[in-house]
Design a protein around this nucleic acid. Structure first.
Length: 308
RNA sequence: GGCAUCGUGGCCGAGUGGCUAGGCAGAGCUCUGCAAAAGCUCGUACAGCGGUUCGAAUCCGCUCGAUGCCU
């Protein structure tokens, strides 16, 4: 029996992924899985450019605003939930759409993450605290002791990486590296990867305009409402953190807005770096009509089924 | 027209004869549970021309440009 298809749509922020995904979902009469690490959170709507009510009603969406910023929702959680949901949807659809600009989240669904045991969040909290107190060096030394292999392999200057490896070592009593290298997971679907791209100036232009639009739509108020919870990880997000600085009196509103634009541009640049290295993405210019991409997908599917 | 001050990489900015400041912006990159996060790498520029000197962004002259003051 033929495997069902997952159409994965990627690209930098603001390039038009949402709109394309809806066109595709309607054309193939199917549903959309979102792989956007910030649109999960229902408290963050304007600043994450989550699909509008109208867009949501144009096609069924999953993993949009289904969580609260109070929850810690990790890539691992997402991989598990997304696969489960897809399993269910594949019962009635032979093709699904996945859209999202969060590289790691997309990768988790397409290729799978190794299984790591859950560890007590208190361990990470303690490590974060220690990093703050003593700096990173003692933690690096601790990792070198506990898991020399990982110490050699990871970016030792990156606190997140050092702490993640350490929390696994401490929480499980086994080296982080001992959980790795099972390779890509087998998946019961065939992925077709679509990338949207535009000249850098166009991407940046669209970002700048979109930020202004967000402000007009009430981003300031949304951020103000969230300000008391600014310590939550979900709120360490472009569009919010800069406004928090402003609320604290550290920057003017104008400066904060410029920072949002700048940080969004940088984010888009990192997304480009991430997706550039992926080899089997079919890239389309952002002006390509959806109909053209639809017929491309149909051709790919035909190709796939005839070669089996 | 005269006098004065100044002219450093996209921007800001230190440097007064030899030892490629620094910051910002930008670019490139890394990536297995904080990922819209976090981290790494990258710029020989001294307005132009000529001179002094072993050696000049630094000293001298001229030219151009900017700013200020004066008539």
């Amino acid at each position: 029996m033929d495997k069902p298809y997952l159409i994965s749509i990627v690209g930098p922020t603001g390039i038009g992924k949402t709109s394309l995904s809806i066109h595709l979902a309607r054309a193939f009469n199917t549903e959309i899985i979102s792989a956007d690490s910030r649109q999960f959170f229902r408290e963050m709507h304007i600043g994450t450019a989550a699909p509008s009510a109208q867009e949501l009603s144009a096609a069924p969406h999953h993993f949009i605003q289904h969580r609260s910023i109070q929850e810690n929702y990790s890539v691992g959680d997402f991989e598990r939930d997304a696969l489960e949901k897809m399993e269910e949807l594949f019962q009635t659809h032979r093709l699904l759409i996945m859209v999202g600009g969060s590289g790691l989240y997309v990768k988790s669904v397409l290729e799978g993450l190794d299984n790591f045991p859950e560890v007590d969040p208190a361990i990470r909290a303690a490590l974060n605290e220690k990093a703050l107190q003593t700096g990173l060096i003692p933690l690096q030394e601790q990792l070198k002791e506990a898991d020399p292999e990982t110490f050699e392999r990871i970016d030792i200057n990156n606190p997140h990486r050092v702490i993640r490896a350490l929390e696994i070592c401490i929480g499980t009593g086994k080296p982080y590296s001992s959980f790795l290298h099972k390779g890509k997971s087998s998946r019961n679907f065939e992925a077709i990867k679509i990338g949207l791209i535009a000249p850098r100036e166009v991407i940046y232009d669209r970002i700048n305009q979109r930020v202004d639009l967000m402000l007009k739509d009430g981003l300031l108020q949304e951020a103000r409402d969230l300000f008391p919870q600014k310590e939550l990880n979900a709120l360490n997000t472009v569009g919010y953190k800069e406004l928090f600085e402003h609320f604290e009196g550290k920057t003017s509103l104008e400066e904060a807005v410029e920072e949002i634009k700048k940080n969004t541009r940088r984010f888009a640049k990192r997304q480009l770096t991430w997706f550039r290295k992926e080899e089997d993405i079919h890239w389309f210019d952002y002006t390509t009509p959806a109909s053209e991409i639809i017929s491309f997908i149909e051709k790919e599917i035909k190709k796939g089924s005839s070669s089996i």
